[in-house]
Design a protein around this nucleic acid. Structure first.
Length: 257
DNA sequence: CGGCATGTTTCGCC
DNA sequence: AGGCGAAACATGCC
């Protein structure tokens, strides 16, 4: 489920490690830069931030970037801030561990454990964030409008473009489009200024609600609804599923125009 | 077995 | 040049 909301949940969880020193580290070298483990040993963690879908662990040396891909997840001090990941395995196989950071005795659980069955996630040092657009909680209607007006791609593809809205993922994009009453396949430059205002207003409000509820699977267009298309949560009107911007889109044929 | 999955990068085509 | 869609990546699950 890693979208920006999950990154934010993990960011907040990892924040308990601020002030601690990394005394030992292990990584799966296939998903980390060469020399990573040695580079982070003895670093003191000074802050934990989020940039879009990336969690940033600041230290008195380089910043560690955690990119979750489709199935990456984090366990902090032995407990998981998010227990179950939709579309990922319910198991927690040690063979899927990609990063372990210890800030205490090695017989204790690592302070940070990054686990990822599929290897789309990766770990970085001083990640380049220059390509990220405005954060999904921060972008303004006029900022989004300026981009949409120049794009012929679908509004949903633009929302998913991390150069435009950093942190928004497939589930949250469908969710906010549903609340805004905008069909995902509409061309970006066809979305009006008023619709854009509505979209941004809805985005802030719904993301806040979903964050409080536990992440991107807690909206009305949740994974079960996506799989079963039981009908529009508002009144049972037919939901439709199609491929937009290379991803599965689910929307209401009656209320999203 | 075939198809699908919360993401990003790369490739080829305008 | 840059935008866009499709494919590729790796793996588990239904």
């Amino acid at each position: 489920m890693p979208e920006g909301l999950e990154a934010e949940i993990w960011r907040a969880a990892i924040e308990v490690t601020v002030g601690r020193t990394i005394i030992d580290a292990w990584v799966d070298e296939r998903v980390a830069p060469p020399g990573f483990a040695a580079a982070v040993r003895d670093l003191r963690i000074t802050a934990v931030r989020r940039a879009g879908k990336v969690v940033l662990v600041d230290t008195d040396g380089p910043t560690i970037g955690l990119h979750f891909g489709m199935t990456g997840r984090v366990v902090v001090d032995g407990s998981a801030p998010i227990e179950r990941l939709s579309y990922a395995s319910d198991r927690d196989d040690a063979g899927w561990n990609r990063l372990l950071l210890w800030t205490g005795p090695s017989d204790q659980p690592p302070a940070v454990r990054f686990n990822d069955p599929r290897r789309f996630g990766h770990i970085s040092l001083d990640p380049d964030l220059s390509g990220l657009g405005r954060d999904m909680f921060v972008i303004t209607p006029s900022e989004l409008r300026a981009v949409l007006a120049r794009r012929r791609a679908s509004v949903k593809a633009v929302l998913l473009d991390q150069h435009v809205v950093a942190g928004l993922g497939n589930l949250c994009a469908d969710e906010v489009l549903w609340w805004a009453g905008i069909a995902p396949h509409r061309a970006g430059d066809d979305v009006t200024a008023e619709e854009t205002r509505r979209l941004v207003t809805v985005m802030r409000r719904r993301l806040r609600v979903m964050l409080r509820r536990g992440g991107s699977t807690t909206g009305v267009i949740d994974p079960r609804v996506r799989a079963e298309l039981p009908g529009c949560p508002r009144d049972g009107a037919p939901l439709r599923r199609s491929r937009i911007g290379g991803r599965t889109a689910v929307w209401c044929t009656a209320h999203q125009r």
